[in-house]
Computed example of a mutant assay.
Amino acid sequence: MYVEYLTNLLNTVYKVPGTIDPEKSFLELEVDSLSLAELSAHLEDELDVPIDEENLSAATTVAELAALLETHGAVMPA
């Protein structure tokens, strides 16, 4: 559920091209540090869950971020 949400967000808002492999890091997906900061703020606002900088880095994978969202009880938008 969160993997699909994140891949859609990365494709549409952050313009990551092609099919996103959830096991690839943000560095491998060529998501820069500014986009990661924006993504963190976006997730905090939209899903009402805190994302610490230590939990979201260039080395973090989409799957790891999805698991973090689930662990923190993120609320998916309607």
Rank of each mutant, 00 (worst) to 15 (best):
T61F: 13
S33A: 06
L68A: 10
L34I: 15
H42K: 14
A78G: 07
E23D: 13
E70M: 04
D21G: 01
P17M: 06
T60F: 09
P50S: 12
L43V: 07
L9S: 02
V75N: 03
T7E: 03
L9I: 03
D32Q: 09
D45T: 15
Y2F: 14
L29N: 07
A63T: 10
P22W: 01
E70C: 00
I20G: 05
S57M: 13
G73V: 09
D45P: 01
V3P: 00
L39I: 13
A63H: 09
Y2L: 06
V31A: 01
E64Y: 07
L6R: 02
L47T: 10
N11V: 00
P22V: 01
E38H: 09
A37Y: 06
A67M: 04
K15E: 10
V31M: 03
M76C: 01
L65D: 05
S57F: 04
E38S: 12
A58N: 10
L39E: 07
A41P: 01
E4F: 00
L65V: 10
Y14N: 03
T12Q: 12
L29E: 06
A63K: 14
V62H: 06
E53P: 03
A41E: 13
P17A: 13
P17W: 01
D21V: 02
M76N: 02
K24R: 15
E44M: 13
I20T: 10
V3T: 12
D21N: 15
H42V: 04
E4T: 05
M1S: 03
E54G: 07
T71W: 02
T19R: 10
D21A: 08
Y14D: 03
F26H: 12
S57N: 07
E4D: 07
V49D: 06
L65C: 08
S33N: 04
M1Y: 00
K15T: 09
N11P: 01
K24L: 15
V49F: 08
L43S: 09
I51P: 04
F26G: 10
P77L: 11
L69Y: 07
L68N: 09
E54Q: 15
E54C: 04
S25P: 07
L34C: 04
A58C: 06
E53T: 14
A41R: 12
V49T: 15
L56D: 11
D21H: 07
A59K: 14
A59N: 12
Y2G: 00
D21Q: 06
G18W: 07
A37K: 02
L69K: 05
A63N: 12
Y14I: 06
D52W: 11
V49M: 05
E44V: 13
L9A: 03
V3L: 01
V75Q: 09
T19S: 05
A66L: 02
L68Y: 15
Y2C: 00
S35Q: 14
A41W: 05
Y5A: 00
S35C: 08
E30A: 13
S35H: 11
T12W: 04
E4Q: 03
V13E: 09
V16L: 06
S40H: 05
Y5D: 00
M76H: 10
A66C: 05
T7W: 01
L34F: 15
L65N: 05
F26L: 12
E54R: 15
N11H: 11
E54H: 14
M76V: 07
D21W: 08
N55C: 11
P77H: 12
